[in-house]
Structures are given as C-alpha cells and as structure tokens.
Design a protein around this nucleic acid. Sequence first.
DNA 1: GTTGCATTTACAATTCTGTTGCAAATATAA
DNA 2: TTATATTTGCAACAGAATTGTAAATGCAAC
Lengths: 140, 140
Amino acid sequence: MQERVAHILKHHQLRVTACRKQVITFFLTQRHAIGHAELEQELEDFDRVTIYRTLNTFLEKGIVHQVPDDVGGAKYALCSDDCDEHAHQDNHVHFKCVECHKLTCIEEVGIPTITLPEGFVAMKASLLIKGVCETCGITA
Amino acid sequence: MQERVAHILKHHQLRVTACRKQVITFFLTQRHAIGHAELEQELEDFDRVTIYRTLNTFLEKGIVHQVPDDVGGAKYALCSDDCDEHAHQDNHVHFKCVECHKLTCIEEVGIPTITLPEGFVAMKASLLIKGVCETCGITA
DNA sequence: GTTGCATTTACAATTCTGTTGCAAATATAA
DNA sequence: TTATATTTGCAACAGAATTGTAAATGCAAC
C-alpha cells in the first residue's frame, strides 16, 4: 500500500512527505469524495494550511479532481489513471446522497451531450444527482 | 411592477418589506442568477445579514431556487410560476460563461434522464455547463 | 387613526473557508 | 554527509455565512 502511495507521488514529480502520503492513503481507503474539513479531522497532526496546499498541489498535478457540491466548500476525488497534469478526464456523473450526505463519483456513467440554444458554446459540463445511495437504500 | 412584487410576497405568506421588495425587483430586472455579493452591492441600504436571511426565506418559500456555481458561493434565480413551498420545478440546465462569469438559467433545455447503477435512486439533478454565452460570443 | 403583537431588521460577535508571507524543517540528489 | 530547493508550521488576514438579541416595523383588530 505505502509503496503504491509513494509511486503515485513520484510519478507526478512530488516529494514523498508524511502529509501527502496520509492524504493519498485516506483517499484510497474511502470511496466517496473528500473535503478539506474531513481531512483536517482525520489528519490531526498536520496544519490546516498544509492540507489546503496539499489538495491544491494534487489538483494541479492531476492526482485529484474537484467534485461539485452544493454546500460546504469544494470536494475532491482521486483521478483515474488516465489523468495527468495537462488533461483531466472527469466527464462523469457525481452523486450526492441525501441520507448520508456522501458524494460519490459514478465513473461508469458519462455526462450526455446537451444541445444549447443558438449562440451558446459549451466547453465543460458537470452533473450532480441527488438521491439515495446504494448503502442507505438497503438500510432504509 | 411594485404591485406584482407585493403580490409575489403575499402569495407566499410573507410580509411586504422594503428589503424584500427591492430584492425581488432586482431579480425581475436581471436575466442571470444572482449571488449575495451582487445583492449587497446593489442594495446598499440593507444589512448583509438581512440579505442573507431574505435569500434563505425566499429559498424556503419557493420564490427562488439555488443555482449551482463552481466558485464564489451560492447563486439564486427566480422560480417559474409553477414552483411552491413544497415542490421546486427547476429541472433545467444552467450555463456559466467563462468570459463574463454570468450564470444563466436555460429554461428551454431540460436535464435528460440519467440511468444510474443498481442501488442508486435519483431524486434531483443539477447540470452546470461552462462555455461562452451568446453575448460574449458576438463580442469576441 | 391608534394599539398590540408577531415578524423582520440592524448590530455585534462568532464560525467556517480559504489565502499569503516568511522562517524553520526536511526530502532528495550529489 | 552536505547543499539546496521544496515543503511545512505559524501568524495574520480576508471573505462567506450564521446566531443571538434588542429595536424597529408590518399588519390586523379595534
């Protein structure tokens, strides 16, 4: 596991530090998108600012992508393997559960092409679906 | 105009106050979605907090709906006539221009139905498209 | 028009989110 | 082991948003 984490960092020309390793490890163990607040609670030994900077560095290097959320600031999720510094490949649907409030990437569902009225030129789209996730659906 | 504004408020069981009238009037004269910051600049005579509470009240009562935005906090737009306290009818696409940064409701384009993986139940979807709007497209 | 009461507002204080500058610490390569 | 560029922690700051409370105001009944 830790070898894999170090590999990800080196592959993106980043130094292997304790904070970065713990952030990536947490991303790998969670299936949902993560925000700064959640990381700050989880990684108690690191400064708020360091976590902000770690997330921004990962975003720039293409290790994570931003996930749209309606409340509570930005969320992040690990990119799939075919992302790099220059081109993100996150054209998939995101799902927010109204029960557990967790945000999940639905990688297997892409965003359909939308035809806009005359004059509008689309460049990028993000689709957030709210509802009940598989875990909460079983419990209810 | 002012009669129409007062009617909207009374129809939603709200008292007709100066701040609420000015907020609705501003919504009616703008075609794009509006955030707190823009209202605060426009309505100089009212306290920041009052504007926050006015927007929240309007949201609860179904006078406005929230429009997803990637940066700079929540934006709001007037609901169409068939919205009420219990059911919002804002299943349309939203467009954000990368030039002028304005957010527009594209009421004439609905969000297509998305088929989610087994176990996920969709209740509500919001779709934000970024690109160049009709006005900026002409100018460029 | 005046009165009474519930709603709404302004103000102060606080919390949460995110950024910047800089000195100390540390990862990496030589 | 050492040199150096990168990263971290700390302090300070800026903006977004919320909460409590007393004063002001809308509105209905008289």
